[in-house]
Nucleic acid binder design. Structure first.
Lengths: 210, 210
DNA sequence: CTGCCTATCACACATTTATGTGATTGGGTG
DNA sequence: CACCCAATCACATAAATGTGTGATAGGCAG
């Protein structure tokens, strides 16, 4: 028996979901709430297997609700529910330990399947969501980022800058004069289109030159 | 009609897959190869909709094959096929633009469904794979990392530092005196255990405070 | 061979940063 | 109420950084 809590502000949908799930073999809705202001206590009291959490709710939204749940319980599975496959929300939800992310327009049968999957440790996702996740993932780990045509020597200098070295330290580290370090850095700044050390460092991280 | 290429070193499995797919309505295997040494030319010649690519192959492995394909064609869908839900491979595959990642033990019916999904722009993943992806994702973007107890105001200042602002610019942006900016930054440095702007920026990126 | 680029070094000067030492105000807590 | 702390501002000074304008030497391509 899979025991659920539902958080959904829309009364029709909340009722609909509750009826659908209660009417299905092996599922039971313990309670359904219209906001997640007290989600911590409720989860603690009901000890559900799975939480269905709407993302777009007034007051405490679903992401906040998810965070609250994760503060006290790593164990309960949380399935995010939304109308949009909105990039930022997907990202936030996943980063905060959601177990899955499904669109509301998902067919009832599919939804039950997803719930089951979540409970058994899977990560159910609408196909469009999965696509987004993969895209985000590969954009994060894209090593295609420009390297701005830095020369080898310039890359070394930049690396040391990123590690927090001063000009003086770089000079001694690289066995060159401090003025040479300046020269290199000036060149680096031109190539990166920045004009301060911290900007260069930030750009190095963003472009994954480092 | 979904047109496929198959790369799989195991003869039994290669034949099995070919027969399964060819025997199914709406699918056609254009060719099946036992290695992907000439994958670029083959993809160019056959122009398949979907490529089934085994990961664990002798010679050029599946990841290399994927890279080769992606060099010349962004369009063809590539579905990675493997016996393991091995962490590193999943990561590599996704980073290199695989459209999906399924285990070989996937039931035939499910596999056809996955192929269809991939072709229509979805990102089919075995549930266990999806779980892994989510875990990797959240570990990359874990904001559980220390925030070093920065106050709200300090976080704002640090954010602006990261964006390349000078003290002067921060002061005007935040409507405070430049000396106040100095105070905040001094505090920030203490909390982050650094003593220069660029180090603070680097640490901000590393700890994902930003 | 000539021109171009990288790497090296030098000097000068203005600006920015880093650090120390204070002071004031208002909010929160024991 | 007394105390602490975050946030604000001030003044001073040393160090580091950013920028301009050179010069020299070696490697490589046309």
């Amino acid at each position: 028996m899979t025991r659920l809590l539902i958080y959904e502000d829309n009364p029709q949908l909340r009722e609909g979901l509750t009826m659908l799930i209660n009417g299905s073999e092996g599922f039971e809705v313990l309670a359904a709430f219209k906001n997640c202001n007290s989600v911590e206590e409720e989860v603690k009291a009901f000890k559900p297997d799975v939480v269905l959490m709407d993302i777009d709710m007034p007051g405490t939204n679903g992401i906040e609700g998810l965070k609250k749940i994760r503060k006290s319980s790593e164990d309960v599975k949380v399935l995010m529910l939304t109308v949009f496959d909105d990039n930022k929300n997907v990202f936030e939800a996943i980063s905060n330990g959601a177990n899955g992310y499904v669109l509301k327009k998902t067919a009832p049968a599919k939804l039950l399947e997803y719930i089951q999957e979540a409970q058994t440790g899977g990560a159910p996702m609408t196909s469009s969501i999965a696509t987004q996740v993969l895209k985000m993932f590969s954009s994060i780990h894209s090593d295609k980022g420009d390297n701005y045509d830095l020369s080898e020597r310039e890359k070394q200098v930049l690396q040391l800058l990123v590690n927090g070295y001063s000009y003086k330290m770089i000079a001694s580290e690289m066995f060159i004069a401090i003025d040479t370090v300046r020269s290199h850095i000036k060149k680096i700044y031109e190539k990166l289109h920045v004009n301060s050390k911290s900007e260069a460092v930030a750009k190095a991280f963003k472009s994954r030159i480092i």
